[in-house]
Design a protein around this nucleic acid. Structure first.
Length: 803
DNA sequence: TCGAGAATTGTTTTT
DNA sequence: CAATTCTCGA
């Protein structure tokens, strides 16, 4: 007992011991909430308030689930493994696997990922002859997903459809559902939704789970959506021992339905709920925390709390604006390389996955070992999806999508036209594609030659089924995958793509095999899921793996990932990169219907990023970067503006105040939104080759900019207080700072030319200055150009050169 | 049926 | 820019 409660502060201890009844734990970043959760579970176990398997703990990732199990196990040896720790999605799969047949699905259902969903929707649009320009599958699916997250089914959606578009979407929604059902498949949202359906339609199923779980904990509660709320509500209804942990300031998944009111209104929904706030931060330095607090304080409607720490001051966070994204990446990688921290203790965080490319490039160049979390998910890679599709057909014969995906992979001479006919035949006879293929010879429209090829494919599948059956004692995944690789001609097909691709693909398949072996070894048939095959569980498991789950912390490598992926992690040093208006906060959030709300979400994301840092926070931006093949320029993020000047070392590139204002207009909508609202392609056509930065004349070229720095001097920054390596870094840091001059935030300079002088402009060429007028933030210059006539320019913006 | 080259189109963020 | 779709010739 003393063990479990020792080392906890008063609040934490209170939370650990408050086991009965609803509890809302408002846990700020780095306040030790995982610690509280694990100790709480251990406390319950030690007190023998219930059996391990009667505790349900829901985490955000599978990795977190594993870690929690481990940590509990360390506190109460031998019992941690039996606690039901899981993500919402995995939990639902387990529950559905047991009982989904009671609501009209088969228990060997497939799980469709985003790609599968899109393929399915594309087919629907085609069959219903809807204009794919008008109904883009991505958009339609987003609407459907949104509806599902709010527990609006197709019928209800139809009833509420108020305009033509919505009625069309309703039709698509219905068809989409029908096809999922026909394929015996569920999408991600369904996993949650169907579980709720199951609970509502089969009360005894619900009560069996209700009876089982005496204690329920939900981590990252601020990111739960309505369906998840409903699940939690239902499951906890009997014993009401529900503990939710979250931080409204870290709610960053609104886009996928997370509803912040779940946490804000917890006390209303669960009367008598106890609220405990954890406000002491154990992770970051005072200086990092101050910056994070300052930024997040710009949000309205938060739960009142102030994070504080007893940690040392630490050094001031820095912000540096580089000229280009390339330079940003290079400097960041070099700094990481020379910092007095192990690579694994540092992370590069960014808003979008696309930003990783440059960092990756620089890491390769500098030979810095790195790992990118996210981007293209392992299980979405072509070769993996292909192989899994084979396995899906083996497991679930009615999965048409899987069938269509690999029927001609490797090339068997079964083309689109043939498959079109087969699909039609299948539809007419109400059978699955695979069943249709099995009887290909009887399909009149399919000619004999192709039918023979089809028979070859069917043969492959049947052989695989044999392989599986031959190992009914539960060892066969490895053989199965190897069989797909080696006996279908798949390996040969890959060779054609070139040796490099071949190698990486083979490696990926190897990785899949070891995953499979691993899975098999740890596989314990569910107490109640008797006949459910090992294969089906493997496939279900595999589709729920997030990329973060696959990272191992053993290697000393530099980690790069999106801010979203960084949630829940911590590093000694964090690089927060790409802090530019239009990127972070994203242009979409600025242009959205609800800019205020969306920018607040971006700000929370920023807060999450900053609070990942334990000792050093380094923020950067680029004056220009390539986006969609166009060089675009941007001013530093508004979040940088929100940092008080004495709280960080802020180095912006020198720009006149006037150009800032223009730049604001540029970034805050006008020009970009036009590109978004209307076709940006028409722009391209109209302007021909005059693309990108040249179109926004005056922004693209960075020549002529200097640096200046606001706030205090460099004293106290750098790595002086750390160790020897630090001296080196300090030097590096200083030399990187070369060219920076001290100055105030906004400083207008009188140009070095005057009325009557000859000047040169990058676009307009030479001309004579005819007038100069001082403006509040800049000098306005009138020039009579030789070739272009009179122009009125802002000096800080036009970069005129005296000649 | 299939491949190569052209054209088009797109970015948040993810279980 | 890069990923995906389209188009056309064999």
């Amino acid at each position: 007992m003393t063990d479990i409660l020792s080392g906890l502060n008063e609040k934490q201890r209170e939370a650990v011991q408050y086991t009965e009844g609803p509890l809302l734990l408002l846990a700020g970043a780095g306040s030790g909430k995982t610690r509280v959760l694990t100790h709480r579970i251990a406390y319950i176990l030690e007190r023998q308030l219930c059996e391990p398997w009667q505790i349900l703990a829901i985490t955000f990732t599978n990795k977190a689930a594993g870690e929690m199990r481990e940590r509990v196990d360390r506190l109460i040896p031998g019992q941690g493994q039996d606690v039901f720790v899981s993500t919402f999605h995995s939990m639902c799969v387990r529950m559905l696997r047991r009982d989904i047949d009671r609501i009209g699905y088969q228990r060997d259902f497939s799980i469709y990922d985003t790609d599968d969903q899109r393929t399915l929707m594309r087919g629907i649009l085609k069959d219903l002859k809807m204009d794919p320009k008008q109904y883009r599958e991505r958009g339609v699916l987003a609407v459907i997903s949104d509806a599902k997250n709010r527990m609006i089914d197709a019928d209800l959606y139809e009833q509420n459809a108020s305009d033509f578009f919505e009625r069309s979407v309703a039709k698509l929604y219905k068809e989409y559902e029908a096809r999922l059902k026909k394929n015996n498949a569920l999408d991600f949202d369904d996993l949650l939704l169907k579980t709720v359906d199951l609970f509502k339609e089969e009360p005894d199923v619900l009560s069996s789970w209700q009876n089982r779980f005496y204690y329920i904990c939900v981590d990252e509660y601020q990111d739960t959506n309505m369906v998840q709320f409903e699940l939690v509500r239902l499951l906890s209804a009997k014993y009401k021992n529900l503990c939710v942990v979250g931080d409204d300031d870290q709610s960053i998944y609104k886009f996928r339905g997370a509803d912040i009111t779940n946490i804000l209104d917890f006390e209303k929904c669960f009367p008598g709920a106890k609220v405990i706030k954890l406000e002491q931060n154990y992770r970051s330095t005072k200086n990092i925390l101050r910056v994070a607090n300052e930024v997040i304080s710009h949000n309205e409607g938060r739960k009142d709390k102030t994070l504080w720490t007893e940690n040392p001051e630490g050094e001031l966070p820095t912000f540096t604006e580089y000229a280009t994204a390339g330079e940003e990446a290079e400097q960041v990688v070099k700094q990481a390389m020379n910092a007095p921290f192990a690579l694994r203790e540092q992370a590069i965080l960014y808003r979008t996955n696309a930003q990783s490319r440059l960092f990756e490039e620089k890491c390769i160049r500098e030979s810095v070992p790195y790992v990118i979390v996210g981007g293209v998910n392992f299980y979405q890679r072509k070769e993996i999806k292909d192989i899994l599709s084979y396995l899906r057909i083996v497991a679930n014969g009615v999965d048409d999508l899987a069938c269509q995906r690999v029927v001609n992979v490797p090339k068997r001479g079964i083309g689109d036209t043939t498959m079109e006919r087969v699909a039609q035949f299948a539809g007419q006879n109400g059978i699955s594609i695979y069943d249709a293929l099995c009887t290909a010879l009887t399909i009149p429209e399919v000619n004999k030659g192709t039918a023979a090829k089809i028979a070859g494919f069917v043969d492959v599948i049947e052989t695989l089924r044999e392989t599986l059956k031959a190992h009914d004692d539960g060892c066969g995944l490895k053989e199965l995958i190897e069989s797909v690789r080696d006996n279908t001609g798949y390996a040969e097909e890959m060779k054609k793509e070139g040796p490099v691709e071949y190698e990486t693909r083979m490696q990926n398949i190897e990785e899949l095999i070891s995953k499979a072996v691993d899975f098999e070894e740890n596989y314990t048939p569910e107490d109640d899921a008797d006949s459910m095959s090992l294969l089906a569980s493997f496939l279900e498991d595999v589709s729920l793996v997030a990329d973060i789950d696959r990272t191992n912390d053993d290697d000393d490598v530099l980690t790069m990932m999106t801010l979203h992926a960084a949630k829940g992690l911590e590093f000694d040093r964090v690089f927060l990169c790409g802090m530019e208006e239009g990127l972070f906060p994203s242009q979409a959030s600025i242009n959205s219907q609800d800019p205020k709300g969306e920018i607040e979400e971006e700000r929370r994301l920023c807060y999450v990023g900053m609070t990942r840092a334990k000792k050093v926070l380094t923020m950067t931006s680029a004056g220009e970067r390539m986006i969609n093949g166009e060089t675009r320029s941007a001013r530093p993020s508004r979040f940088i503006d929100e940092i008080p000047s004495d709280a960080a070392v802020i180095s912006r590139r020198r720009r006149s105040a006037a150009s800032w204002d223009d730049n604001d207009a540029f970034n805050d909508g006008e020009l970009f939104s036009r590109r978004d609202t209307y076709s940006c392609r028409s722009d391209r056509r109209e302007y021909g080759t005059d693309r990108g930065s040249r179109r926004y004349e005056g922004f693209g070229d960075s020549a002529g900019f200097g640096y200046y720095q606001t706030s205090n001097s460099f004293e106290g920054s750098g790595y002086g207080s750390l160790d020897h390596t630090s001296a080196r870094s300090e030097k590096k840091a200083q030399s990187a700072m070369k060219g920076f001059v001290k100055g105030s935030a906004i400083e207008k300079q009188k140009p070095d030319y005057g009325v009557g002088d000859r000047v040169n402009h990058t676009k307009f060429g030479e001309g004579t200055v005819t007038a100069m007028e001082e403006r509040p933030k800049d000098w306005q210059v009138t020039v009579e150009f030789d070739d272009w006539g009179q122009k009125v320019l802002m000096a800080g913006f036009a970069r005129l050169e005296k000649c």
